[in-house]
């Protein structure tokens, strides 16, 4: 059986080094602009640092993938095509795209450039994947976090395209690529600007009722003195519905597939992905090491595999929130 690739985030060179040294088979990165969905201040690569990073990874047998997974608009179209050109020039191992116009450009201009369909492309069935394969010869698809485990297996059984699933990290609750909550509140979304709930719209304030955090004026959450406050991603805030205050959409929690690693391998996923290009090199090192160990254990002895308590504890220390979940993979979550 072909080995499953461990794909890890590289928000910068230090994180990339940690990922490669800790056992990632591939790293994914973005350029320093709105062409990727982690367009955060201080993150990402220019052409020169990308070249160094690629050399570092390639020298150690790791592949480098480039996320170009936002949706260009006509006014700034050339920014995105320039990014494709740069990726081809740099010898990137694959480009992760979401926009069909950009895929068309890449296919025509660089027929040998390997294309992956980004999770932002929102393909949730084998038939949708077939569209992208037929039109653009995509080699791999990253599945949106909306399918149950059984549905993931159905997709794998019905497509020849490699399937990559998210293994760990912050959880998008909405189907990726088609969520405008962030632009509704701020004018900027992952699709248009490469960021969800952008930091420049975040305001903290102390009030009589607690510590308030707002996103462009919308109160996302209010913490009392003993609660630890998190980043105000707007779908993880506490809101009132029918007079009841709760995490109406989702609580701050991390996705973790540690418990189902052998099942994922058995059903034939080609790669598992770690979220978090915005996270620290220490996070990348920690998560990569644990998932490397778990993947190796599940591949060598699937029947006796158990998620070791120390792995769970290590991941717990770097999780968003204090809990982890299988998300939509588990029907009860839905």
């Amino acid at each position: 059986m072909k080995k499953v690739d461990l794909v890890c985030p590289a928000g910068g060179f230090p994180a990339l080094r940690k990922a490669v040294d800790s056992g990632a088979n591939a790293v994914y990165m973005g350029f320093r602009d709105s062409t990727n969905a982690r367009n955060f201040p201080g993150l990402n690569f220019d052409e020169r640092s990308a070249a160094q990073a690629i050399k570092y990874a390639h020298d150690r047998g790791a592949k480098v993938l480039l996320a170009l997974n936002t949706y260009p608009q006509p006014q700034s179209w050339s920014t995105w095509t320039d990014a494709v050109d740069r990726a081809a020039r740099l010898g990137i191992d694959a480009v992760i795209l979401a926009d069909i116009g950009l895929m068309r450009y890449a296919t025509k201009k660089y027929p040998d450039l390997r294309l992956h369909l980004s999770v932002q492309g929102s393909a949730t069935s084998a038939e949708a994947i077939e569209f992208y394969r037929e039109q653009f010869n995509i080699q791999r698809v990253v599945l949106p976090r909306v399918l149950s485990l059984a549905q993931v297996e159905r997709v794998i059984n019905n497509t020849d395209v490699e399937v990559e699933v998210f293994a760990f990290g912050s959880l998008c609750v909405m189907v990726e690529g088609r969520c405008y909550l962030s632009s509704y509140a701020t004018g900027e979304s992952p699709n248009t600007c490469g960021a969800c709930s952008p930091a420049k719209y975040v305001e903290w304030s102390e009030g009589p009722e607690g510590r308030d955090v707002r996103l462009n004026g919308v109160l996302i959450d209010r913490y009392d003195q003993v609660e630890s406050a998190g980043y105000p991603v707007l779908c993880k805030g506490r809101f009132n519905v029918k007079g009841k205050l709760d995490y109406a959409i989702e609580e701050p929690t991390s996705l973790s597939v540690l418990d189902i690693m052998p099942q994922l391998i058995k059903m034939g996923v080609a790669a598992i992905k770690v979220e978090g290009r915005q996270r620290s090199p220490a996070y990348v090192e920690q998560v990569t090491s644990v998932l490397r160990a778990a993947l190796d254990a599940a591949e060598s002895s699937p029947d006796s595999y158990v998620a070791k308590p120390e792995w769970v504890a290590q991941l717990g220390r770097v999780s968003e929130g204090t809990t982890h979940t299988l998300g939509a993979l588990e029907r009860e979550w839905q």
């Binding site: 069909i100 116009g101 068309r104």
Partner: peptide, 13 residues
């Protein structure tokens, strides 16, 4: 909900 944001996507569709 198809995510057609530009002229190239539109031309293809």
């Amino acid at each position: 909900h198809l995510n057609c944001y530009n002229h190239e996507s539109m031309a293809l569709l």
